[in-house]
Design a protein around this nucleic acid. Sequence first.
DNA 1: TCAAAAGTGTTTGCTATACACCCATGA
DNA 2: TCATGGGTGTATAGCAAACACTTTTGA
Lengths: 226, 226
Amino acid sequence: MSENFCYAHPHPAVATDVVMFTVRDERLELLLIKRANDPFRGIWALPGGFLDIDEDLEACARRELEEETGLSGLYMEQLYTFSDPGRDPRERVISVTYLSLVSSNRLELRAASDAADAAWFPIDQLPELAFDHGRIVALAHERLLAKLEYSTIAFQLMPYTFTLSELQSVYEILRGERLDKRNFRKWIQALDLIEQTGELRRSGQHRPARVYRAKNRGEGEIQIIK
Amino acid sequence: MSENFCYAHPHPAVATDVVMFTVRDERLELLLIKRANDPFRGIWALPGGFLDIDEDLEACARRELEEETGLSGLYMEQLYTFSDPGRDPRERVISVTYLSLVSSNRLELRAASDAADAAWFPIDQLPELAFDHGRIVALAHERLLAKLEYSTIAFQLMPYTFTLSELQSVYEILRGERLDKRNFRKWIQALDLIEQTGELRRSGQHRPARVYRAKNRGEGEIQIIK
DNA sequence: TCAAAAGTGTTTGCTATACACCCATGA
DNA sequence: TCATGGGTGTATAGCAAACACTTTTGA
C-alpha cells in the first residue's frame, strides 16, 4: 500500500469510538467487538474506526457502528476526545468518542467485515479491553449516570412504548437502588414528558399495565429537567 | 515548503481553539486575537493552532494560548470537537475546543508571534469572527452558564482571595440578574467551600469586608454541587 | 381463591425564597 | 454626620421523601 497523502506538517490520524449501552436482563450492558486485526487482535474493543476525509465525526461514528454491528438510527452524543500520544501503538491517533444508547427491543447484532465478533457484556463483567478503551467506558458510564439525574436520557433506553414499571426498572438498574413506586410515578408524570397510548399491556397473572410513550420522540431529543 | 509527511490514507489536520472568558468592568468578556495570516487575515478569532505530533490536546491549547497571549496556568476544560468538513477553507481541520477562565486580576495580555493583536471583548459586543468561531463561542457561553448552576466553576473567575460581595457580583453578571445578599451568603457558606483568611479589605468610605479564599484551590478543581 | 404486579394520597421535613435593618468606615 | 457598601435572621412556600393498602388479572 503506497503512501500517497502528503502534508507539510505531520498529521495525526483521527478516529471515532462508540460506547453503546443498553439495559436488558436487569443489567446495564456494553457493546464490544472482538478485533480481527492487529494491534490487539482477538481482544475486545469499542466499535469505531477512522474518519473519512469528507464526513463529520458523528457520521463516522454512525457509519462504523453500522458496519460493525448493523445498529443504526440511534441516540448518539459526543463524549470526549482522547489524545494521549501513546494511546495507539501504530501511529498517533486522536479518538473522538461518542455515547450511544439503544432500547433492549432492537439490539439484534450482526457481526461484519472488520469485527470478528460483536457481543453485549454486563458493565461489571467486562473483559480486558484494547487501547485505552477501559478509560473511555468509565467516562461514558459516569456521564450516563450524571445525565440520568437532570435529563431524560433514560428514555433512549426504552422501546417506543413502555409501562411505568418498565421505566422505573431502568432507572433502578442504572442508579443501583430501589425507588418508591408512588414517588417515581408522581415525579415522572409531573415532568409532563410522557403520555398514555390508551393501550393496556397484559403479562402474567396480574393486573394489566397502562402503556405510555415519550411525548416528543424527535428521535434523540434530550430534555433538561428543571 | 516540501510535503514530507505521507500516509496511506488522507489525514485531517487537528487543531485546538480556546474560549477564554473573564469578568471585568461588570461584564463577561472574551479573549480574541486578530489573525495575522490568511485565511481571515485581519479578522478576530479564538486563540489556537495546530497540534504538535507528540503533545496531547490540552497541552496544545495551553501552548498556543501562551504563545499568542502570554496567559498560562489557568483553568481549562475540554468543550467539544468540531468537524464540519467545510469549516476551514485551507484543508480539512478538526478543532478540539477548550473552555478556559481567568480571574480579572491576572489578565495582562502580551500579543505575540502569530497574532497581530489580542484583546478582550464584552460577550454582547463581539466583532465578526473567523471560521465557525461564533458557534464555538455560543456553545462555550452556554456551557459556562449551565455549570454555574451545579458546580463551583465561578471560583475560577475569582482572584486567590475575594470578598463575598465580589463573588456575588460575578454570579450576578454571569446570570444577568440581581441576587439577594442574605440568601447568597447563606447558600455559599453552606457549601463549605470557602474559608475566611482573617484579613479585612478596605475600599471606600464604608465598613471593610472580610476576605475569603476557596478551600481546596488545587489549581483548577471544580466541585459538583449537591 | 391465590399469587403477582398495577395503581393510588397524605404527612413530614428540608430547601429555596422573600424580605429590612444595623454596622463600620472615610470623607 | 453622612454616605456607602458590609453584614445579619425569620417566616413561608414548594418540593422531595417516607410510608400501606386496594385493584385486576391468569392460573
